[in-house]
């Protein structure tokens, strides 16, 4: 188990070294972020649902950072959903949308 944690830390270390130069400091795990984004955001933010479709590549990295930094989600209609998310959840989601933002190295839709 210790070994697994060590490996995990090593993996995380690599992410950080890889991306530290480009990304803001407080980002979580983008894989977890994708899962959380789909679970918490995508139910409403897609075509035919109540909110406008939203994908990582809907915004630039800077735009995503601003949304998460200012923590102004109280103004969003889905503020109630945001409140439910822990800080680490939010960091994970930011890591995901940032990593696949419009101007990221691999822009992507959430599929």
């Amino acid at each position: 188990m210790l070994k697994r944690i060590a490996i995990l830390l090593l993996g995380l270390g690599l992410i950080v070294t890889m991306t530290a130069a480009v990304m803001a400091a407080d980002m979580g795990n983008e894989r977890k972020g994708k899962y959380l984004f789909r679970k918490n955001c995508r139910a409403c933010h897609q075509d035919g649902q109540s909110a406008p479709a939203l994908n990582p590549d809907s915004k630039t990295q800077a735009q995503w950072e601003r949304i998460f930094e200012k923590k102004k989600y109280e103004d969003f209609e889905c503020a109630a959903e945001w409140v439910k998310l822990s800080d680490s959840d939010k960091a994970d989601i930011l890591a995901y949308v940032h990593g696949h933002a419009f101007d990221s190295p691999s822009p992507a839709k959430c599929k």
């Binding site: 995990l8 993996g11 690599l14 992410i15 070294t17 890889m18 894989r31 977890k32």
Partner: peptide, 17 residues
């Protein structure tokens, strides 16, 4: 359906980095 999340899993690809 969204893929499930497994907490007890590796966080990155093996070829990462």
């Amino acid at each position: 359906p969204d893929a499930p999340w497994y907490d007890d899993n590796m966080m990155e690809r093996a070829d990462h980095g």
